[in-house]
Write a protein that binds this DNA or RNA. Structure first.
Lengths: 333, 333
DNA sequence: TTGTAAGCGTTATCAG
DNA sequence: CTGATAACGCTTACAA
């Protein structure tokens, strides 16, 4: 590994332009106190030698890396790539580089990621991970890394949080449904290992059903369109209706497609609501009624909050994104 | 900004455990030549003080950062998030941290990203960007950063490339179509600013049409489901058939849905092929015939190639991923 | 086995 | 306005 070996250093630039390190540094950092001529000369040598400052050395000396750590459970979901998109846009605008950390749904893994983030020396972090709890964030925070936690309400000195409002909306939709229909059995589709958001909405679902005195079911499904589709092709052989609450668009689409392909009518026989809606809710046919939070906005907001937090000027430490329900063709209401 | 100020340093660990810096360093790096007792003592202090080495200082001293730069045009497309997923999985397995750089479709932007990558002091980079050309890569490479270029065949000492095979497949499909059908006019949907891959396949489309002596059209569409859908609702008012080649699933879906919603039959009246297929090709109804390359595999392969390149042991510097065509319900063939 | 000291490429605090 | 020189936190010969 000799990849960084022969970099041009500030020292060579100084020598080549007949000034000291300090002067070159001033030029690089656009500080005053440099004669236009000197500046020009130095800039010329910089260009000629193709000198690029080492971010590493700068960070070490300045005690500031302009790196932001981003922790996500996987890069493979549409709503997470939307989140990432929002984060990257603001990061670029504000001149930060993002370090990406992926946790993959296990507590142990998540903890080792926390260590990595600390070691990485980031100036701040945005964490979207269900495995970590208040203590873990406290630990991370104790290393003086300001954090914005997404989907987890943490109250602490150097931590800001963004939360999502799905439960209230879901309960409202369910009650509305119960009023008009007392035939279809409500079914919640539980995806294994999908974190607290799912758990919380599932609990809300159960509460709503029990309050309305409706018999409900919880199904375990795989987090895969193909397998869920296959499962429901089987299911619809002897169940000819239902009201389904799915975690993701792809799960919801699996049910809708399985129902349609089994000769059932959506939404007359089968109704499906998707919890985490994306633009695909609008593309599938029938279109999917879904709840939606603009994850790109969430990402952007997280970055803005983090920047304020790093500057000690974040006033409102908690921000709640309320989901929006859009009735489409997969439900009657 | 005092976020990194009060970090525990190796020096404090040394003092607290009554040894020298060097010994602590040896313990951290799991080097031999340390008495079990000493090691234990040091490890205890490390745990007690909550010491985490500074990746920055380590990188500077070792001339090696274990950071990989990843350059992408946007985080907002499904196939790019798939790519990212493949990269992250291997990166995690091999202990690399990823630095994410987003270029957003402009040459100037792309160049400034190259500078940032150099400054970032990454050990290597994976670049998926259409704006950059051989010279730009040569420049990046001249800073001793090994690169894997995706979707651009670059031949150079410290550069490896991964290319995509869409054209051959597209021509085959078109010819096949021309044989069976000489009514539907072939139409290529040009998305503005979508890079060389689109340009190349478009050229292949034109060649195939001309070779078959078929009249064709190139349409400009927005890179947006909603707008393309609206455009085609208009279009299908006075055009009642067509054979469309779309760049992405979402564009293809827009046409299929617009056709269906205009009372046209897919694939009898309107046929649509999607170039860059994703799992959504299977979810929409009718399903979309599409070409497909598993981008997650591409990402993983890119990381493996990069690691070999960094170790000077990459033999085959170019790897081509051939697309796979899957006929689904949006075409007859 | 352990310690000393010279880097790594910058910035920042002084004098001049 | 410019130049020494000491940090920044760590690694790594070289000595001991």
């Amino acid at each position: 590994m000799d990849n960084l070996k022969e970099r041009v250093t500030i020292y060579e630039v100084a020598k080549a332009s007949g000034v000291s390190l300090a002067t070159v540094s001033r030029v690089i950092n656009n500080q005053g106190n440099v004669t236009p001529q000197t500046r020009q000369r130095v800039e010329a040598t910089i260009a000629r030698l193709g000198y690029k400052p080492s971010g590493l050395a700068q960070a070490l000396a300045k005690n500031k890396s302009t790196n932001i750590g981003v922790v996500i459970p996987s890069a493979n979901y549409v709503y997470i790539s939307n989140l990432l998109h929002g984060i990257t846009e603001v990061a670029k605008e504000k001149g930060f580089v993002l370090s990406l950390f992926v946790t993959s749904h296990s507590k142990k893994d998540a903890l080792s990621v926390v260590d990595k983030v600390i070691t990485s020396h980031v100036d701040g972090a945005i964490v979207f991970d269900d495995e970590l709890d208040a203590d873990d964030f406290e630990k991370l925070s104790s290393y003086y890394v300001p954090i914005i936690v997404i989907n987890n309400n943490i109250q602490s000195e150097r931590i800001g949080s963004i939360t999502f409002g799905y439960e209230h909306n879901l309960v409202r939709i369910l009650n509305n449904h119960f009023e008009k229909d007392n035939v279809k059995r409500p079914v919640f589709l539980h995806v294994h290992n999908c974190g607290q958001l799912l758990t919380r909405t599932e609990a809300a679902f159960v509460r709503a059903c029990e309050a309305a005195n409706r018999e409900y079911r919880i199904f375990n499904v795989d987090d895969s369109y193909t397998r869920t589709y296959a499962d429901f092709i089987g299911y619809f052989k002897d169940h000819r209706n239902g009201y389904f609450v799915a975690y993701r668009d792809s799960i919801a689409a699996a049910i809708v497609n399985a129902a349609t392909d089994s000769g059932l009518k959506v939404p007359q026989d089968v109704e499906v609501v998707s919890l985490i809606g994306t633009k695909y809710a609008n593309i599938t046919r029938p279109t999917l009624s879904s709840m939606h939070i603009n994850m790109s906005d969430v990402g952007a907001r997280a970055m803005y909050m983090l920047i304020e937090l790093m500057n000690h000027e974040l006033k409102q430490k908690t921000y709640k994104f309320e989901s929006e329900y859009t009735k489409r063709d997969s439900t009657k209401e």
